[in-house]
Amino acid sequence: MLRRSLLLLSAAALAAGTFSAVRPAQAAWPERTITIVCASGAGGAVDVTTRIITDHMAKTLGQNIVVQNEPGAGGTLAIGQVAKAQPDGYTLLTIGPTVGTIKELYPNATVDPVRDLQPVTIVGQTPMVLVVNKEVPVTDYKSFLAYAKAHPGELTFASNGRGSAGHLAGSLFKKMANVDLRYIPYRSTPQATTDLLGGRVSMIWLSSLGNLGTSGEVRPIAVSITGERWKPFPNLPTFDEMGLKDYEATTWVSLHAPKGTPAEVVEKLTTAMNAALADPDVQRRFDQIGIVKPRATGPVFLTKYLHDEIEKWGDILRTTKDTD
C-alpha cells in the first residue's frame, strides 16, 4: 500500500512538473519568427505600412517578423492562408479595406473575415487625392461637381481592382454626391494611371501622386479624409470642407490573427503595435508618405470598425451597382 501511494505521489508530481513546464512556454510567446501575410503587392500602401510597423514590433517582441506578400482575389487568398494556420500567434494578416467588402464583392468566397479571423488592431490609414485628366473641363471641386451632374454617365473613374480603396472612394462619392460615374477596374494602379494620362479614363483616387502632381497632365481636386487637411497636401481641401460632409475613404490597414488565437497573444500584439505607433521615428516615416495614425487601437475597436465597414460598403456597392 505504501509503495502504491508513493507511486501515485510520484505520478502526481510528474504531472504537476509537466504542467509547470508547459505554462512558461505559453507565456513566453513569441519564441520564434512571426510571419505576417500581407494581402497586397510589394510597394503598395498596405505593404509599406506593414513594413514600417513590423520593423519596430520585431524589436519590442524580441523576434524576427517576416512579411510575405499574397495579393490577389480581393484579399481572399491571404485570408484563406491565415485562416488555415495554427492559432498560435505565429501567422498573422495585414489587409486593407477589401476586408470589409468580401461579402459583397465575392459572395462565393470560401473565406469569411468575421468567421475566420481574430481582429487585433488597426495599424494606420492613408487618405487619397482625387485627380482628373487635364482634358476634363474643371479646375476645382465646385466646377468638377457641376460638370459631373450636368453630364451623367460621361465621366469614368479607375482603380486597381474591385474592393480597392480607389474603387470604394469612387463608389462612395457617387452615392453621397448623387452623380453618375462609370467604374472601370484595372489589374494595377500603374495601368490605371497610364490610361488616366492617356485620357482613356477621366479620374482616379490615389494615395500617392509621385511625379504625377507636377506633370501638368492631371488636376488634383480634393482629399478623401475628414478633419484637418492631409500633411502631404496642405493646400488641397478635403471633400468634407468643400461641402460633402463626412466623406471619407482611406486605405486603412488592419492586423488580424486566426480565429482562436489566445487573448494574451492578441494583447501582446496590441501592446507592441501601440509602442510602434508612439515611436517618433515611426511617426516620421508615416509623415513622409502620408500615413495617418489610427484614432484608436485594439481588438474591441477593430471588431466594431470592421462590422461597421461591412455594413457601410455593402450598402454603397449595392446601390451604386459598382460590383461588376
Rank of each mutant, 00 (worst) to 15 (best):
Ala85Phe: 02
Gln191Phe: 14
Asp279Cys: 08
Pro71Tyr: 04
Val123Ile: 14
Asp180Gln: 13
Gly199Cys: 08
Thr50Gln: 01
Gly74Ser: 06
Ser202Thr: 08
Asp240Gln: 06
Val218Asp: 02
Gly100Asp: 02
Val138Gly: 03
Ala109Val: 04
Ile316Tyr: 12
Gly290Ser: 07
Val48Ala: 15
Met242Gln: 14
Leu168Thr: 00
Thr303Gln: 11
Gln288Pro: 03
Pro234Arg: 05
Val48Met: 12
Val282Pro: 00
Ser224Asp: 03
Phe233Ala: 11
Asp315Pro: 01
Leu317Met: 05
Pro280Gly: 10
Thr126Val: 12
Gly260Trp: 07
Pro299Ala: 10
Arg51Gln: 15
His167Tyr: 08
Glu311Leu: 15
Glu309Lys: 13
Ile204Ala: 12
Trp205Tyr: 13
Arg187Glu: 12
Thr194Tyr: 14
Asp55Leu: 10
Thr18Met: 13
Trp29Phe: 15
His256Trp: 14
Thr50Glu: 01
Glu135Leu: 15
Ala73Asn: 14
Arg200Glu: 09
Gln118Ala: 10
Asp47Ile: 04
Pro30Phe: 10
Lys103Gly: 04
Asp281Gln: 15
Leu206Val: 03
Pro220Ala: 15
Gly44Glu: 08
Ile310Val: 13
Gly153Pro: 05
Gly44Ala: 13
Ala165Glu: 05
Lys103Glu: 10
Ala15Leu: 15
Tyr141Ala: 08
Ser159Arg: 01
Ser10Arg: 11
Val46Ile: 10
Leu168Ser: 01
Pro237Arg: 08
Gly227Leu: 02
Thr194Gln: 15
Pro258Gln: 09
Trp252Phe: 09
Lys231Val: 11
Asn211Ile: 10
Thr250Phe: 07
Ile36His: 03
Trp252Leu: 00
Gly75Lys: 01
Thr94Asn: 05
Leu236Tyr: 03
Gln63Pro: 05
Ile221Gln: 02
Gly75Cys: 06
Ala15Tyr: 11
Glu31Gln: 15
Leu117Phe: 06
Trp230Val: 01
Leu92Val: 02
Leu6Tyr: 14
Val129Asn: 01
Lys149Ala: 10
Phe157His: 05
Arg187Ser: 14
Pro262Trp: 01
Asp315Gly: 05
His167Met: 05
Ile204Thr: 07
Thr297Val: 09
Arg285Pro: 00
Asn274Arg: 15
Val66Ala: 11
His151Trp: 06
Asp287Val: 09
Gly72Ile: 01
Ser215Met: 09
Leu145Cys: 05
Ala78Ser: 05
Leu9Thr: 09
Lys259Asp: 03
Lys304Ala: 14
Asn235Cys: 06
Ser254Asp: 02
Thr126Glu: 12
